[in-house]
Amino acid sequence: MEIPQGLRRAIENQIRDIEHVRMKDDAQAISSRYRTQSGKGKRLLTKETEAAAYAAARMPATFGAVSDALKYSLPYLENCPQTLLDAGAGTGTAAWAADAELKLKKIICLEREDAMIKIGKNMMKCSSELLCNAEWIKNDLTVDEIPEQADLVIASYVLNEMTSEERMETVKKLWDAAKMMFLIIEPGTPVGFSNLAEIRQVMLKWGAHIAAPCPHESDCPKEKNDWCGFACRVSRSRLHRQLKGGEVPYEDEKFIYMAFTREKCHSAEARVLRHPQIHKGYVGLEICTKDGIKNIKFSKKDGERYKKARKVKAGDEI
């Protein structure tokens, strides 16, 4: 996936005057904090240089994950969302992704860190008219009330930073703010999956419906020590490779997501859980269906279905 040129330019303009050595150190420090301190309710980023480093290091992959989650989820809505609430917006990545996928009329970004708000606003100045006019509100999701409702509410890579109690209280507030859809994107890890599975159970009790990725609203068929996730491949700029200490021209971002809706909606008949297992003469797929998890095979005799099965990836509808 190529991130939009407008976003790439916005990132480059934001970090133009920051020494690369300092930015690399900040990016590595932030990455370490997110790995070791998420889920404890701590503030993980407060300085402007850190916010800029975060934008350069994390926005491309996060944009890819949110974009994929939107592409998987939005087709199941009968009506197109016109307003967006980006909750825990950071530097506004989810807003950029939604602006690229939808014809929105209004965007509201909620963020508690002044440094993130400043960087996010600056980056949107040279973007679309809608992003330029996005409303930024200083808001701590764990403490403050949600000031407005929106058709689409996105919580991207933010709930995992909270304690369990804070997470569920925040989910309730964000669900109350969602008129049509509440989309959650989390890191593709066993912990992230466990947190989202807990949210899934509670949301269904509150009367929510699942648009994606689950093709059903029954108990998750995954065994206790197993989990499923998805991935998107995002191209890297030279600067991005330097910050991440990588040589390859792309980054694979592992993520999980779930889209909840107010109204009962159509969902996939089955969704691929793992990348295809390609063997001599056939392809094996693990899929989640309305009747549980199944393992299916397509041989060359299946023609187009066999060819299609070779090319699917985890998360695709089948």
Rank of each mutant, 00 (worst) to 15 (best):
G120W: 06
K121C: 08
N122G: 14
N122H: 11
N122E: 14
M123F: 07
M123Y: 09
M124V: 01
K125C: 13
K125F: 08
K125V: 09
S128F: 09
E129I: 08
E129M: 06
C132R: 15
C132W: 12
C132I: 10
N133F: 01
N133W: 01
A134I: 02
E135S: 09
W136A: 02
I137S: 05
K138P: 01
T142L: 03
T142E: 13
V143Y: 09
D144E: 01
E145H: 12
Q149L: 12
A150S: 15
D151Y: 03
D151K: 07
D151E: 12
V153L: 00
I154A: 11
I154C: 08
A155E: 02
S156L: 01
S156G: 02
Y157K: 11
V158P: 09
V158M: 13
L159T: 03
L159Q: 03
N160D: 14
E161R: 04
T163C: 05
T163W: 06
E165T: 14
E165P: 04
R167W: 12
M168P: 02
V171K: 02
V171C: 06
V171F: 01
K172P: 02
L174C: 00
W175R: 00
W175D: 00
A178C: 03
K179C: 03
M180G: 00
M181D: 03
M181L: 06
F182L: 06
F182C: 00
L183G: 09
L183V: 06
L183W: 08
I184E: 02
I185P: 00
E186R: 04
P187S: 11
G188P: 07
G188V: 03
G192I: 07
G192T: 09
G192D: 11
F193I: 11
N195S: 13
N195E: 15
N195T: 07
A197K: 14
E198P: 05
I199A: 05
I199G: 07
I199W: 03
R200K: 14
Q201N: 15
V202L: 13
L204N: 01
K205G: 03
G207W: 04
G207F: 10
A208K: 13
A211V: 04
A211P: 05
A212L: 08
A212N: 13
A212D: 15
A212R: 14
P213V: 06
C214M: 11
P215Q: 12
H216R: 08
E217Y: 11
E217G: 09
E217A: 14
D219E: 15
